[in-house]
């Protein structure tokens, strides 16, 4: 009995060591953000720095706020539009199946699997010719294309769990389609809608390729902005860490809160 308990504690200890090692880069980044620049990149590392909030002040004095706002508009805007398109589509695919459910699902997911690189050149040239470069609205629209398939798949999987009897009962009662969706189905799948929305938000918030290529000053989002903190001439590690910390907080916090929903979302509904 005691040996097995000892072994259990040992495995637990090993688990914690590995988990903390894995988490270390994030912890170190946050820790470094609170250091003065002179104590950030030192060898040996400074473990007891003079804590300061100055780097966060620097980050915002370098005007990070507009970039965060751009990220927020593009992420929130695209997420809401994606949900508005995906929920009805998933509804049609799961609760009122039409003939080619498989084909439609296959199509949606294949668009997600297609490298963005495959369609970026015409998109870039089109935006250039209509003056759509460096524009948050266009970035938002492109993010819809990126996230729509994931949302459709996730929502399909959540909708498949709605008890069929409930819908049939509503239909027998002569409920209109609107009532059927908003009164009967939506309340049940609301957590699913939130999860799908969260995943879309995360992907949009973290997106770098399109943002880097299609925006410059006005519409620049946070991920490409972060790279501007790397400074070839001086020390920059703690200010970079502070900016990165600010950049990851919204999504990490949201992910921590809704982690149970993440699994299904990430597997695009393939796992229940």
């Amino acid at each position: 009995m005691t040996t097995s308990r000892l072994r259990g504690s040992l495995v637990t200890a090993v688990t914690w060591v590995l988990v903390l090692a894995f988490f270390f880069p994030v912890a170190w980044m946050v820790f470094t953000a609170f250091k003065p620049e002179s104590q950030a990149a030192t060898m040996p590392p400074t473990f007891a720095p003079d804590f300061t909030l100055d780097r966060f002040e620097t980050v915002f004095s370098r005007n990070m706020l507009p970039y965060l706002i751009n990220s927020l508009s593009a992420s929130l805007g695209s997420t809401l539009l994606v949900l508005a398109l995906a929920v009805p589509a998933a509804y049609a695919l799961s609760i009122r199946p039409i003939v080619n459910v498989r084909d439609a699902l296959f199509f949606f997911i294949s668009t997600r699997f297609m490298p963005v690189a495959a369609s970026i050149i015409p998109v870039y040239l089109l935006l250039q010719s209509v003056g759509g470069l460096d524009n948050v609205t266009w970035l938002t629209i492109l993010y819809i294309g990126v996230n729509l398939p994931i949302a459709v798949w996730m929502m399909r999987s959540f909708l498949a769990e709605v008890p069929r009897e409930l819908i049939e009962a509503a239909q027998l009662d002569g409920a209109r389609l609107g009532t059927e969706i908003f009164r009967v189905v939506l309340p049940i799948v609301l957590p699913g809608v939130a999860a799908a929305g969260l995943i879309c938000f995360i992907f949009a918030w973290n997106e770098f390729f399109l943002a880097n290529l299609l925006t410059a000053q006005v519409a620049r989002t946070t991920p490409p902005f972060l790279t501007s903190f790397v400074d070839g001439r001086g020390q920059f590690l703690s200010v970079l860490s502070a900016a990165s910390t600010v950049a990851i907080v919204p999504v990490v916090a949201a992910g921590w809160i809704a982690q149970k929903q993440l699994v299904r979302g990430l597997a695009m509904g393939a796992i229940k």
């Binding site: 880069p25 980044m29 770098f208 950049a247 990490v252 992910g255």
Partner: peptide, 9 residues
């Protein structure tokens, strides 16, 4: 957490 961290960061 590592999966949630912005890839650029």
């Amino acid at each position: 957490t590592p999966f949630l961290v912005m890839p650029a960061a």
